[in-house]
């Protein structure tokens, strides 16, 4: 199955990741109190749960865009050169069921 077979452009999580990239203050809040940031978005229950559980497989199955998945992993696990390696490994582990 291709990465885009389930793609659902209506997921609110897409806007969440975009806003986190564009807004440093929102990023800080996300780091301190993730739940309060998630509250701002019309996330479906399964969508929110997948984010909270760092379950990228579930998020992709719901239709999340994989490129934003890579960026969400960096927002969570690290966004510098080495943090990105950590993020990639965490993401791949989740997607392959090896986490």
């Amino acid at each position: 199955m291709g990465l885009f077979d389930n793609f659902d452009p209506t997921l609110a999580a897409h806007d969440l990741v975009q806003d986190l990239k564009w807004d440093p203050e929102l990023r800080q809040q996300f780091e301190k109190d993730e739940g309060s940031v998630l509250d701002r978005y019309a996330l479906r229950p399964a969508e929110r749960q997948a984010i909270e559980q760092r379950d990228f497989r579930k998020l992709y199955d719901l239709g999340f865009h994989p490129y934003l998945g890579g960026q969400l992993a960096r927002l969570i696990y690290g966004n510098d050169v080495d943090g990105a390696i950590r993020a990639v490994n965490k993401l791949v582990s989740s997607l392959t069921g090896k986490s």
Binding site: L3, P66, G70, L95
Partner: peptide, 9 residues
């Protein structure tokens, strides 16, 4: 390349 996918590497 496959950014964000299970075949990231």
């Amino acid at each position: 390349h496959e950014p964000g996918g299970s075949r990231y590497y």
